[in-house]
C-alpha cells in the first residue's frame, strides 16, 4: 500500500456522496417538471371538497402524478382520521 492510500482511507469519498444525492434529486425534479401545471390548483380544490366531509389536514392529502410512454396516472391519497 502506498503512502497515498494510507491517507485516502481516512477520507470519505465525497464524489460518491455527491453522485448519490444528485441522482435522487434529479430524478425527483424530472418528475416534478413533467407534471401538468393544473396540479397545485387541483390539489387545493380537492382539499376544499374533502374538508366538507372529513376533518383532514393539508399533510393528509397527497397527489402523485406519473407518466410513461403508455399512460398518465394521477394518484390521490387521503389519510382519514381515526374516529371516522
Amino acid at each position: 500500500m502506498s503512502l497515498l492510500n494510507y491517507f485516502k482511507k481516512s477520507k470519505p469519498n465525497t464524489a460518491q456522496l455527491a453522485k448519490e444525492r444528485l441522482q435522487i434529486l434529479v430524478a425527483h425534479e424530472r418528475t416534478q417538471r413533467n407534471q401538468p401545471s393544473y396540479l397545485p390548483e387541483l390539489q387545493k380544490e380537492l382539499m376544499a371538497v374533502i374538508k366538507k366531509y372529513v376533518q383532514v389536514n393539508q399533510d393528509d392529502i397527497s397527489i402523485n402524478y406519473e407518466s410513461d410512454d403508455e399512460q398518465e396516472t394521477l394518484e390521490l391519497n387521503i389519510v382519514l382520521p381515526d374516529n371516522v
Binding site: K8, K11, N13, T14, A15, Q16, A18, K19, L22, Q23, V26
Partner: peptide, 13 residues
C-alpha cells in the same frame, strides 16, 4: 482521489 465527480458520474446523471 474521490473528491470530484467523474465524467462517468456526470454522464450517468
Amino acid at each position: 482521489l474521490g473528491e470530484m465527480l467523474s465524467v462517468d458520474d456526470v454522464q450517468d446523471i
